[in-house]
Amino acid sequence: MSLAAATAAAARATTTAAESHGFLSPTGVEIAFLLVGLVTFGAAIVTVTTKQLVHAALWLVMALGGLAVEYLLLTAEFIAWVQVLIYVGSVVVLLLFGLMLTKAPIGRSPDADSGNRWVALTVAVAAAAALVWVVVDAFRTTWVDLKGPAAGSTEVTGASLFQNWVLPFEALSVLLLAALVGAIVLSRKAKADATTPADAATPAGAQSRRSEKEGTR
């Protein structure tokens, strides 16, 4: 996911640079955008290749933070801060929380390598290519005016979100709500399983019960 996001960012970086009117005499913002894009891309690569699990999470912070900076450079201030708030402040904290609960060692994990490496790479490259193609195709002629009023300020974002994109927004919220309810249901069932060990005395009985539950699910 992070790789895809990072590559998307990098892709966008290249697009803007290419689309820029002053490609041969780029402005400071464009140079910064490109550099931050490269850093973000690099951080994303390290995230998926490093063998130290917690380092991967921290490189992910770097990649997500880089994305936030890119948003800022595109004057999408609101999105940038929300990116930091949600991804860096909460998602990564949750990730680290989970990692700390595991036996993640300090230093390299010997088994941090996946056999699916090539498949993953293929999927990632394909996804990146698709995203780059879509973004280039969609925003070919769009030009973000950095000089004028901010195109991504809170007011503008809110207006467009609740005027043009209400339906996707609501669909998303329903999706999240469903996920929330599903999580609660799953955790409650796990609890019920744990609290009735007497019923699961025989392995066969336990198996049958589990299969029943699978069925109800």
Binding site: F78, W81, V84, V88
Partner: peptide
Amino acid sequence: VVDAGIFFVLAVMGVGVL
């Protein structure tokens, strides 16, 4: 002056916990 000041402040404060 930060346009989305509240979000900026809360987001950055959350980073400190990292």
